[in-house]
């Protein structure tokens, strides 16, 4: 997914050095730019996350913040990965220059796949509620993945369906359950990406807010799938020891509802 560049975007200095392929801009957030590039060899793709200088910040503050955020994200990714939480691997870090290189995840974000799947069903004429096995399966996997992350003491800070990916299977591992062959749109390992706002926390409140943001993201982006969010929560509830308490706390967060107006 490329983006039309209206205004000249800063390239991290590292991309000025030669490489086999030109960098490809994938997304442009408020904080960082994401490029597809290569690590070490032309055959090894990577995601390059670059935090450009912010002209409004005092240079000392800007450098300090950028370094801190790059390192924090890298640390959390490593911590998660070490404990088996499905996140991209860190390849290289240069906090002084404001970038981080991560394992390239081949696949697509859940937001896109889910919308494709919903549209495909609509075209096929399948009624809501029918043949939902795949969707339920995806929701379960999402719940498990988020639960794993919370279980190791990390909260994401920005859980949306754009920050969850479905990893394409590597061709070597052809599997048995090709359902009808064609539209296995919702298959694939769930990978959690973009830990730019993540932090270390075991507080129920933080975990509950993480879930609430995801719930509201489903509500505003995929209202037709929103009804099955309880499957996410059910799978989450079984994923680690403190999970049921978080679900209880989620009810309070919903009542307070500020975040509802934020995303509604």
């Amino acid at each position: 997914m490329t983006s039309i560049l209206q205004y000249p975007l800063p390239l991290p200095p590292i991309l000025a050095h030669p490489s086999s392929t030109a960098p490809l801009l994938i997304t442009q957030g408020a904080e960082a730019l994401l490029y597809k590039s290569t690590y070490l060899l032309p055959s090894l793709p990577c995601a390059l996350k670059y935090r450009p200088r912010k002209p409004y910040r005092h240079p000392t503050l800007d450098t300090r913040l950028t370094k801190h955020r790059i390192l924090s994200e890298a640390r959390l990714l490593l911590k998660c990965r070490k404990e088996g939480v499905p996140v991209p691997s860190v390849y290289a870090v240069d906090e002084g220059q404001g970038w981080l290189m991560l394992e390239w995840i081949e696949g697509e974000v859940v937001r896109v796949r889910l919308n494709e799947w919903l549209r495909w069903r609509r075209e096929k004429g399948t009624a809501e509620g029918e043949e939902e096995g795949e969707l339920r399966g995806l929701m379960e996997r999402i719940g498990e993945a988020v639960g794993m992350m919370h279980g190791v003491g990390v909260v994401h800070g920005d859980l949306t369906t754009s920050n969850l990916m479905l990893k394409s299977r590597e061709h070597a591992e052809v599997n048995d359950h090709a359902e009808g062959g064609e539209e296995n749109l919702l298959a694939g390992e769930v990978i959690i990406i973009d830990l730019g706002l993540a932090s270390v926390s075991r507080f129920e409140e933080d975990r509950a807010v993480d879930l609430y943001v995801l719930e509201r993201a489903f509500g505003s982006t995929h209202p037709r799938a929103e009804g099955l969010f309880e499957v996410v929560l059910e799978a989450y509830g079984k994923s680690f020891k403190g999970a049921p308490i978080v679900l209880k706390r989620l009810e309070d967060v919903r009542m307070r509802g500020r975040k509802r107006s934020m995303l509604g």
């Binding site: 408020a30 912010k54 409004y56 910040r57 005092h58 503050l61």
Partner: peptide
């Protein structure tokens, strides 16, 4: 500089 940077962010 610090609080305003936070607000702008």
């Amino acid at each position: 500089e610090t609080v305003y940077a936070m607000l702008v962010e």
